Amino acid sequence: MPRDTFEARLDALRTDVCAMGRDVTERLDRAVTAYEQRDPEAGRAVADADGEINERYLDLEAECIDLLALHQPVASDLRLVVASFKILTDLERVGDLAANLGGYVDAMAGDTVPSVPITDIGEMTLAQLRDAIAAYETGDAQRCRDVAAADTDLDERCGAATNDLVRSLVNHTPDDDVAPTLADTRRYLLTVRDLERAGDHAVNIAARTLYMVENDAGLIY
């Protein structure tokens, strides 16, 4: 494969990964908004569209494999393809988490438990994802480190929300039918967990990008 053709395919890969990243982030944003507005139809739409992300993931994964097999890239080019390959996996999993959140909203019974700061947690997660994708797009090493540093705040916020949910359940005054409260509490806990996991995937993206840019595996765990 001619060098200029290979470089064009590398550029296209990076552009396509960023586009997928923005799409996945938008889907997560829509899922968080559906939760905030108690909009089951919007949540269901996010969940039902997950197949589109899976198809894009498989197409771009195949492109990474072709680039590795046909050209045998070295040094920085190799790191870009390998990092992109792994970042695609993180993005696909964030897409799965967005679909999960959409499904939780669709199944909510109503206002059966105290308000949980899902919107605030969601905004923190979305900010991490946007920063991680921007760092990959521009090769910004410092932004990668900032994403990793911000994850501590997200973990603390998720931990506090989880504790509040458990406390509210313990202090709940039983009524004739506690099943809806128990079911909704479980979904809220899963929502917090999944947003925290999405933040972890943002850190993974930042770590892979830092490896790509500086050959530094310090953020990878």
Rank of each mutant, 00 (worst) to 15 (best):
A127T: 11
G199V: 06
R3I: 11
D39V: 05
T152E: 07
N54P: 03
D48P: 03
D146T: 08
V105L: 00
R44P: 04
L97C: 05
D90N: 15
D164E: 11
A83T: 09
E7D: 12
A160C: 08
V46L: 02
I118Q: 03
G43E: 09
G103A: 01
R130H: 04
R79C: 10
R208L: 06
A150I: 03
V166H: 08
Y211T: 10
D29G: 07
E214F: 05
I65L: 04
E196N: 08
A75P: 10
T125V: 02
D155T: 14
L219W: 03
D111V: 14
L97F: 12
Q37L: 12
T125R: 01
S115W: 14
L68M: 09
N163A: 06
C158N: 01
A42L: 02
A62I: 04
V17M: 04
R208K: 06
D177L: 00
Y136D: 07
E63D: 07
T162Q: 14
G159Q: 01
D155K: 13
C144G: 03
D194V: 14
L219C: 05
L126F: 05
L190W: 15
V166W: 07
R197M: 03
V166D: 09
L195S: 01
V32E: 03
A31R: 04
M108Q: 12
A160V: 10
P40K: 02
N100E: 12
T162R: 12
T112S: 01
L165I: 06
S76W: 14
R193A: 11
C18Y: 09
E214L: 05
V81S: 00
D131M: 07
V82P: 02
R38T: 01
E123W: 05
A206E: 08
A150C: 09
A127G: 05
R130E: 01
T162C: 10
A34Q: 12
I133L: 11
A198D: 06
R145E: 11
S84H: 13
A135N: 04
A150E: 08
P114A: 01
A150H: 02
A12W: 15
E61Q: 08
E137Y: 05
S168W: 04
L182V: 09
D120W: 11
A198M: 15
C158R: 00
T89V: 11
A34W: 09
A148R: 15
N163C: 01
A107H: 09
D50G: 00
L129D: 01
A109D: 07
C144Y: 06
P73H: 04
P2M: 15
D146C: 02
R130Q: 07
P180G: 06
L10C: 10
Y188I: 00
R197S: 03
A160S: 15
R30H: 13
A107S: 12
H172Y: 11
E36C: 09
A12I: 15
T191D: 12
A83C: 09
Y104L: 02
Q37W: 13
Q142A: 07
A42Y: 02
L10W: 12
S76N: 14
Y104G: 01
I118G: 05
M1D: 08
E214I: 08
E41K: 11
G139A: 10
